[in-house]
């Protein structure tokens, strides 16, 4: 019995070492050993990733007439501050601070919208190419999981967006009593996001 266990262990050991090329941790001093280094590869890959994200967000925005139109460099949502807020540097400072946050969340929503469309194309292709009922079921499960994950992330972003719009409205109301900024400008954006993004 012990002999069998030994043989099994030996087999497992040999199998592990033959099947894996083990990538090692290496210290930063070795990074310049080769040109391009691994970190410069990561840097150029990150630049590519950024271009991909910008392109995805812009593509989704330009297919949504509320966000922008193809070829229109002025795309995006314009949030009016109004003359009352513009007359106060404190109000404008608060306004611009929230606009930056809203911009960032909307970028993520539009980028993810495009990514969703592209990935769903792949899911459909995988389903079409799958042979056998078992594989079809597995792919359908994977697709369902992806949609659930997408919706959870999207809902969280929409809640974030609404919180920033509410806070922006609150900040404007502080300086411009009775402006009802959120109701006039924030709520339509929130409602648009809620109707457009979740699947």
């Amino acid at each position: 019995m012990t002999r069998m266990v030994k043989q099994l262990l030996l087999f497992l050991l040999l199998y592990c070492s033959s099947q894996l090329a083990i990538a090692a941790d290496y210290d930063g001093a070795m990074d310049n050993l080769f040109n391009p280094s691994f970190s410069s590869m990561l840097t150029s890959a990150s630049k590519f990733t950024q271009a991909h994200s910008d392109h995805s967000a812009a593509t989704a925005c330009r297919t949504d007439p509320k966000c922008g139109m193809p070829g229109d460099s002025n795309s995006g949502f314009k949030l009016p501050a109004g003359s009352c807020c513009e007359g106060s540097s404190a109000c404008i400072e608060a306004f611009d601070g929230y606009v930056t946050k809203i911009d960032s969340v909307m970028y993520a929503l539009y980028k993810n919208e495009r990514t969703y469309a592209v990935i769903m194309r792949i899911h459909q292709a995988r389903m079409g190419a799958a042979s056998g009922a078992r594989k079809q079921v597995d792919f359908a499960k994977a697709q369902k999981g992806f949609i659930e994950k997408f919706n959870a992330k999207t809902r969280s972003n929409i809640i974030k967006l609404n919180n920033y719009l509410l806070a922006l409205g609150g900040a404007v109301d502080q300086y411009c009593t009775g402006s009802k900024w959120y109701k006039r400008n924030g709520l339509p954006i929130y409602q648009h996001a809620k109707a457009k993004f979740p699947k």
Binding site: A51, D54, R62, G76, F77, I102, D103, Y107, Y110
Partner: peptide, 10 residues
């Protein structure tokens, strides 16, 4: 790539 300068602006 085309990019949108900002998704929300004043």
């Amino acid at each position: 790539v085309e990019s949108v300068p900002s998704f929300a602006s004043r």
